[in-house]
Design a protein around this nucleic acid. Structure first.
Lengths: 169, 169
DNA sequence: GGTGAAAGGTCATTAAG
DNA sequence: CTTAATGACCTTTCACC
């Protein structure tokens, strides 16, 4: 149901070489151009492909320090007001409500360790935040990736016989 | 300052509407199209724009559960061998070496809470991993974003933010 | 600024579930 | 009968020189 093997190869190709156009992709995959377009449309419509925007590297912008901050919130007030305030801070790159002793997990970036202290202070000053404990990312062992997932998802076929022939070479 | 205000608006535009071409972008920004192309080339060369690949949503692929797992490793062996093994697991979306009591922080996804248990078991079974403690993401309050950072780096304000510190320039 | 080359749209046809 | 793939047409638009 989610995606089939052709979708997987399509995503793989566009991830590896975003510059290839629809026409070139159709040639390489051995399918019609309209097919590729239809697949891309469907993947976009279903939300599998969220977008084609440029991926920005915070480090290249000068924000070389990444940290993960776990916030404990005051019971009263809920998460949303805090999240709204966190959203005002550019250095907060991501925020999740989580299980466990912490209430929220934020990914933040900073220009330096000194700057990181400033950012953390900003978070602590946010109304509703009771405590913050942070860990610094020393190295990114595995950068954010989804390709293995795509291959996994494309490998499992929900129904029998979606494909009509041997894979083109 | 790695990027200027024009770069910022350029990135902003391509993030909002990746479909706009160089020509259309130059028209909207009121600059020559060669300028836009040169800027894009420079941003790509400098690594600010890492790529234009499609953004895949794991949830749309059926991996609706996200968790953050902190691993404690055995002192002997180091991080890299563990990272290499983690990289073999498709559900491991990201991995960082971190400071603090934990040694590595991984972002993982799973098809369900039951499936999550399976994935965690896989991680614990990785040679060199001593302990794993995980928190589940209940809600994504702030999805991964870089635009506010771009605006900040470009010297612009993103909104009614609490910005202290000396303004650049 | 001009030009070759795609993208994007529509359509009729064919095949398969 | 509904969905999908295909090849063909077309016009607009872009990227490169």
């Amino acid at each position: 149901m989610p995606i089939d093997e052709l979708d997987g190869r399509l995503i793989e190709m566009f991830t590896a070489e975003p510059r290839v156009g629809v026409l070139e992709a159709s040639r390489r995959l051995g399918v019609a151009r309209g097919t590729v377009q239809a697949r891309l449309d469907r993947l976009s419509r279903d939300g599998v492909i969220a977008g084609f925007g440029p991926e920005i590297d915070p480090a290249a912008l000068g924000y070389g320090v990444t940290a993960f901050v776990t916030l404990q919130l005051r019971q009263a007030g809920g998460h949303d007001p805090v999240a709204r305030r966190l959203a005002q801070v550019p250095e907060v790159i991501e925020a999740h409500t989580i299980t466990g002793p912490g209430d929220m997990l934020c990914r933040i970036v900073a220009r330096s360790n000194t700057d990181l202290q400033r950012v953390i202070d900003v978070l602590v000053d946010v109304a509703g935040v009771e405590r913050a404990s942070s860990v610094i990312s020393l190295a990114t062992q595995i950068p954010y990736r989804t390709l293995p997932l795509v291959r996994e998802a494309a490998g499992r076929r929900s129904g029998p016989g979606q494909n009509d022939g041997p894979p083109p070479r």
